[in-house]
Amino acid sequence: MISGTVKSEGSFSPALNGEFIGQGNDYIYVDPDGKHLRLNAHGVIKTTDDATIYLNYTGVVDVTPELTAILGGQSESTVTPFGNSFTHMTFETGEEKYASLENGVWVAAGHFIYEKGSPTIVEYKVSKVTHK
């Protein structure tokens, strides 16, 4: 994770709007059968109100022909569908405004956006698990 943005939906509280800073770590390894990638990513978000939030996520990605083409540099510009990449996220911060993020259970579905000649983008839709 070397760049990117984080922005919550309009009705979410606390509103979160920031970008990744510094050099994150994004560990990816392939299962022995080659059918899944395992993710373990770490980064720091700096919000527009100058708070810092540490993000860690782990997850599983299905290795599809489309993803193989993207990662192998053989793809034309493409966007993969949601449904083949899922993560669990945790947050840590010393900022009281964002402390509630530490107590949630967070899951995300991701997909890949690839434009030939540009870095691959991974986009996640993140949800908080709740009960009623």
Rank of each mutant, 00 (worst) to 15 (best):
G59F: 09
H36D: 01
I70T: 02
D31I: 02
G73A: 07
P81T: 12
E76G: 14
K46P: 06
H36T: 09
V30K: 15
D50L: 02
L71W: 07
K46A: 07
P81Q: 06
S77F: 13
R38Q: 08
P32W: 00
S77A: 09
T52C: 00
I70A: 02
H36P: 00
L67T: 04
A41K: 13
F82D: 06
L39W: 10
V61R: 11
E66R: 10
A51W: 00
E76Y: 05
N56C: 03
L71A: 12
I45Q: 09
V61C: 04
R38A: 03
V44R: 10
Y57N: 10
V60I: 15
L37K: 06
G59T: 11
D31V: 02
L37P: 00
P81H: 08
V63N: 03
K35R: 13
D50R: 01
K35G: 01
L39N: 11
P81S: 11
T78I: 14
V44C: 01
L37R: 14
L37H: 08
T64H: 05
P32R: 10
I45L: 10
D49Y: 03
D49V: 02
V60Q: 12
H42Y: 14
I70H: 08
H42R: 15
V30N: 12
V61N: 01
I53H: 03
V61K: 03
T68L: 14
V79R: 12
L55W: 00
Q74D: 08
N40Y: 08
G34M: 03
E76L: 09
T48Y: 11
T78C: 07
L39C: 08
D62S: 12
T58V: 15
I70M: 08
P81E: 14
T52Q: 07
G59P: 09
S77E: 12
T64W: 09
T52E: 10
P81L: 06
A69C: 02
G59K: 11
